[in-house]
Write a protein that binds this DNA or RNA. Structure first.
Lengths: 338, 338
DNA sequence: CTGAAAGCGCTTACAG
DNA sequence: CTGAAAGCGCTTACAG
């Protein structure tokens, strides 16, 4: 429990010098610095974040707001964020709204505002205007991942293009009966992600003069279970069975594959399945997908935040509108049976 | 950016009274309190955590150390923790070591010690003695989930019994060739979890006078992919194929089921599979398992911590050595083919 | 129940 | 390069 005074006394200098020597701010002679460091080490001195933050106005602490940590995309992005932040020596304060309005309100109305955060990263949250205002009123930098809010830096993939590309892939293989499995309304925590992807799907169909069949517009909660259920239903229907399905997440695509199997259908023979994500399980399932680097998005958000905070030593990300994705061809898609 | 002085002035009282009225500490007349609250509301005043923490020595902030957030158990426990903490109005500082020694060192050697935390919750980390010392030296309460460290409060399930129960279930069905799929050495971030479960398995075999075959002692990284690979290997072997497998996690059990399917084997006809966890996907796979309430464990850890911090209004958990688990019978286990 | 004042442990102009 | 001192925005004995 040694304090800065103890170190100062032990090193024979003033507390001001200890502060400067240890923080790296201000000029200190090499000899003094060494002396101070040795003293600090011996006493097991660790700076008090609270005192330091109060005096300096900087907390070295980033708030991260997520709707859940239980889905692949969220936990993977979070891994990227934690990794980046720990390397930069920053703390991470996690706010998990868990889809509960009440929690969300206390996060935005209270927790985020208590001046202990240097910046905030939000994960696919569709911020309400008043929430944006609340954040702005604190004057802290905000970086969003997975959406687009006016006046807020955003890391995101091109949902529209990804979905149209996935759809075009199936069309190019000869499919004309293509279903779409997107996110359900109640799970739309994000910024129009669901609709942007669905728009891309419909656009691709339209370009190929293919009609959009309402009964092929499916939606679930982005989980394997959800995808399983919906695809099982549509493939069990007496008529109008699609020969292919575009899934808005890999996990739903896994569910689709499992459902097809349970119905005795062959993938891709009876049903082609394409996902979006780049989930590690994709290889095992032979899933064709459009991979996004979720971990990389988390890392990019951290770099962005550090940059906004004026940290040196941060490789500035090339300013680009969209985070890159990659088409990964595997065995879950093929030409339809004739 | 209104401060406590602004509120005091606006309400016509001293800052001391504002502090007492808003924090609930100390006596304030109802009328004064109302006046202060109104003024605070109008000015949009939010207390500065840093100043408050520095002055009071309490941070309302709990550190949570996890080895990863990418596995079912960890993300689920974390959901339970975030939920409990947000309801109690506490912040959560997340430290994800990510299995990297370097990160782990900076967490224990530095971040955890900076006096901004009221307590620490660790998730299945096998603490080194010097790490326990480091934590103890800060004098903050520590609650562990998923292990047993001397002198530290721990929430955990009875790994030995769970595994022996799972094994006994298979033996009772008539199996004698039972494999065990546990965690690999390099993934042993936890407190002997892997070995406790393996011990339980071996104990059950022993009780039934069944030998332990080394080639049936498998290990993977707790993922679906890992389980798939190992089970596929053992079931493809020219001889000594087991008729059942006890998996130390549900995710590995899903991998086992997928592997069996890919080999054209019937589950449970050719291979009975039992898991441990209670993963949401279990129902879809028809997985027999021993369910643990991971979310509940997170919630229990929060209650424990709050209790140690002397929060009133916390239902004290009944002191019990083990967190309860539940046997869930589904369709992945049956008598072996004769 | 309320206020004046010390103090929490740092950081940072300011002066030298 | 270094030090004395003010100040960050609260909380809490102490006194009344």
């Amino acid at each position: 429990m040694a304090g800065i005074k103890d170190v100062a006394q032990s090193a024979g200098v003033s507390v001001a010098t200890v502060s400067r020597a240890l923080s790296g701010n201000g000029k200190v002679s090499a000899a003094t610095r060494a002396k101070v460091q040795r003293a600090a080490e011996e006493l097991g001195y660790v700076v008090s974040f609270n005192a330091s933050s109060l005096a300096s106005g900087r907390s070295r602490n980033i708030g991260v707001v997520v709707p859940t940590v239980g889905r692949w995309y969220f936990s993977t992005v979070l891994e990227g964020i934690t990794n980046g932040l720990i390397e930069a020596g920053y703390d991470l304060t996690l706010y998990n709204t868990g889809g509960q309005d009440q929690h969300r309100r206390s996060v935005f109305g209270d927790l985020l505002l208590r001046k202990r955060l240097d910046a905030v990263i939000t994960l696919t949250l569709k911020l309400q205007p008043h929430e944006v205002d609340q954040l702005a009123s604190v004057g802290k930098p905000v970086v969003a991942i997975g959406g687009l809010i006016p006046a807020i830096d955003t890391i995101r993939v091109d949902d529209f293009n990804i979905a149209s590309m996935a759809t075009e892939h199936l069309i190019a293989l000869g499919h004309s009966k293509i279903a779409y499995l997107g996110g359900s309304e109640e799970f739309e925590v994000d910024f129009k992600l669901a609709s942007a992807r669905q728009d891309g799907y419909e656009y691709a169909l339209d370009q190929a003069n293919l009609p959009v069949h309402p009964e092929w517009l499916l939606s679930a909660d982005f989980t394997i279970q959800g995808g399983y259920q919906k695809v099982r239903n549509v493939m069990s229907a007496p008529r109008r069975q699609p020969t292919a399905v575009v899934c808005a997440s890999d996990e739903m695509a896994f569910g689709a594959i499992l459902a097809a199997r349970d119905l005795g259908l062959d993938v891709p023979g009876d049903l082609s399945v394409i996902g979006i994500d780049g989930h590690e399980l994709g290889e095992l399932f032979g899933l064709t997908t459009i991979a996004q680097d979720a971990r990389g998005q988390g890392a990019a958000a951290v770099r962005k935040v550090l940059q906004l905070l004026g940290e040196r030593d941060v490789d500035p990300d090339p300013t680009r509108s969209f985070f890159p994705t990659e088409f990964v061809a595997r065995t879950s898609t093929a030409a339809p049976r004739t």
